[in-house]
Amino acid sequence: MARQHARTLWYDRPKYVFMEFCVEDSTDVHVLIEDHRIVFSCKNADGVEFYNEIEFYAKVNCKDSQDKRSGRSITCFVRKWKEKVAWPRLTKEDIKLLEKVSTKRPPPAMDDLDDDSDSADATST
């Protein structure tokens, strides 16, 4: 079975970057926080493997960072090396997960929608 990326939420605060890996009922959790990256892996209750490796936007203090596991997710508290410097993104590279569409297409036709279907169900008194 191939590994998947865990859905990841992140929050930028003056001293910390909070990351939440959204995996319910996780087991075999491994979190490695280094000065320039985080490596996360685990399995869920169905045995699906999750793996994320993220290079941070800026240097962090790995010695003053930690993680906490709950039933729904794994939250990492990553201490920024330079406090009070906002991060415009989590990753070093400005990566877009979806490719930009180069040509516009006309909107889909809505011919198959029947306007009378709602009024046929209505009853009058």
Rank of each mutant, 00 (worst) to 15 (best):
E49R: 10
E49L: 15
Y51D: 10
N52H: 04
I54F: 02
I54M: 02
I54V: 07
E55C: 02
F56Q: 04
F56W: 04
F56N: 12
Y57M: 02
Y57C: 01
A58K: 12
A58R: 14
K59G: 01
K59M: 03
K59C: 05
K59P: 01
V60Y: 03
N61H: 00
N61Y: 00
C62M: 12
C62H: 15
C62Q: 09
D64P: 00
D64R: 14
D64H: 12
S65T: 13
Q66H: 07
Q66S: 11
Q66P: 05
Q66W: 03
D67L: 09
K68V: 13
K68P: 07
K68A: 04
K68S: 13
R69T: 03
R69W: 00
R69P: 01
R69K: 00
S70V: 09
S70D: 15
S70Q: 11
S70G: 07
G71P: 11
G71K: 09
G71Y: 13
G71M: 07
S73A: 09
S73D: 11
I74V: 10
T75W: 02
T75D: 09
C76A: 07
F77H: 13
F77G: 00
F77W: 05
R79G: 10
K80Q: 12
K80T: 12
W81V: 02
W81Y: 14
W81E: 04
K82F: 01
E83Y: 07
E83R: 07
E83A: 05
E83N: 09
E83S: 06
E83I: 09
K84S: 14
K84E: 10
A86G: 08
W87T: 01
W87D: 05
P88C: 08
P88A: 03
P88K: 04
P88V: 00
P88Y: 07
R89K: 08
R89H: 06
R89V: 03
R89F: 00
L90W: 09
T91D: 04
K92H: 13
K92V: 02
K92S: 08
K92W: 10
E93V: 07
E93K: 06
D94K: 06
I95C: 09
I95V: 15
K96P: 04
K96N: 10
K96V: 10
K96L: 11
K96W: 09
L97Y: 13
L97R: 11
L98Y: 06
K100I: 13
V101K: 10
V101I: 13
V101E: 10
S102A: 04
S102Y: 01
S102C: 05
S102G: 02
T103V: 15
T103H: 15
T103Y: 08
K104P: 08
K104R: 07
K104A: 15
R105V: 15
R105M: 14
P106H: 06
P107E: 12
P107Q: 06
P107G: 04
P108Q: 02
P108L: 14
A109Y: 01
D111V: 00
D111M: 01
D112F: 13
D114N: 13
D114K: 05
D115I: 09
D115N: 11
D116P: 08
D116C: 12
D116W: 15
S117L: 03
S117N: 02
S117M: 07
D118H: 03
D118S: 13
D118N: 01
D118L: 11
A120E: 15
D121L: 12
D121T: 12
D121Q: 07
A122S: 14
A122M: 09
A122F: 06
T123A: 05
S124G: 08
T125D: 13
T125Y: 02
